[in-house]
């Protein structure tokens, strides 16, 4: 069963950043990492899923129920946090939750349950203006969890958080999936974070879905790579190009070749003979970040 399904979903804008014929398939119980460079259409997609925007064409289905701005019943199953959490800073966390609870007509005990999940019970009566960014993000998640949804849609939930806050958010999301059996649709720029928690990924570029499936499937599709750690990635790339290979500069000191033409040992000898300093040399699976760059050809040469 699918938690989210879109059929030929399209939305155009005059200035670009729309989406085109999107066929998202988010399985129930998955953590779906939705990736794409800036302007790829991620936020537009999320706003279409939440019926904040009208689609030009196509359909959004949440747990098999159609969603549109005029028919929002299926959103009862969805909790969301789009970019920064929307909070009333002059109210306490409890009052913020109470505002949403009143709108939804949810039972009162949901407030304490949501506060417990995000570990904010002790600070529930403090005004939100005194909260740290991490606490605000957690409260944003509590708001999303208030009506005990089956699907959580999160757009950049780790925006602006320090490493400890990011780790907290990761643990929280793992709990929501593991203990509460929720499906999480996660849009984030932190690819290393997505890599750690996502079971599925979708890669969007210029409004078109380039890949969708499990992380495993993504790796199988792109295989492993020869990773060379060196002193100067640029000069190593130039030498390898001279050898007829197609290297990728992954970092200042890191070069990757996805499908080398020659044997690894030959490549190593070629580089040593040309005086390059090589710190490490070997086969390694591509990180999600590298695969993302590979797919979108963003930031490095293909």
């Amino acid at each position: 069963m699918l938690a989210i399904e879109t059929r030929a979903l399209s939305r155009r804008f005059d200035g670009g950043h729309g989406v085109h014929q999107l066929e998202l398939q988010v399985p129930v119980g998955s953590v779906y990492g939705f990736l794409g460079p800036n302007g790829a259409g991620k936020t537009t997609t999320i706003r279409l899923l939440l019926a904040l925007l009208r689609a030009d064409e196509g359909e959004v289905r949440i747990f098999s129920q159609s969603v549109a701005p005029d028919d929002r019943r299926a959103l009862r199953e969805v909790g969301s946090m789009v970019e920064t959490p929307s909070l009333y800073p002059h109210l306490s966390a409890r009052d913020n939750l109470e505002v949403t609870r009143r709108l939804l007509g949810a039972p009162k005990q949901h407030i304490d349950e949501a506060l417990d999940i995000v570990d904010l019970r002790a600070d529930a009566d403090r005004r939100v203006r005194d909260y740290s960014l991490g606490m605000r993000q957690r409260l944003g998640i509590a708001l999303a969890l208030l009506d005990q949804p089956r699907l959580l849609v999160l757009d950049e939930p780790t925006n602006g958080l320090d490493p400890a806050g990011i780790a907290d958010m990761r643990v929280l999301m793992q709990r929501m999936v593991g203990e509460l059996g929720m499906t999480v649709f996660l849009c984030s720029h932190l690819l290393s974070e997505v890599e750690q928690i996502a079971t599925h990924v979708g890669v969007l570029q210029q409004g078109t879905l380039l890949f969708q499936g499990t992380q495993q499937a993504l790796r199988e599709r792109y295989g492993d790579a020869l990773i060379i750690r060196c002193l100067d990635a640029n000069s190593v790339c130039a030498s390898l190009a001279g050898l007829g290979e197609t290297p990728q500069r992954l970092d200042d000191d890191k070069v990757g070749i996805r499908t080398p033409r020659l044997a690894d040992a030959e490549i190593n000898r070629w580089l040593i003979e040309r005086g390059h300093t090589i710190h490490a040399f070997g086969r390694s699976p591509y990180s999600l970040e590298t695969l993302f760059f590979e797919l979108t050809q963003y930031g490095v040469a293909a």
């Binding site: 959103l75 789009v82 929307s86 909070l87």
Partner: peptide, 13 residues
């Protein structure tokens, strides 16, 4: 505080 996006995403008319 960009509350509209939260309010309008709720399953409320």
């Amino acid at each position: 505080n960009q509350q509209w996006k939260h309010l309008l995403a709720l399953p409320v008319p």
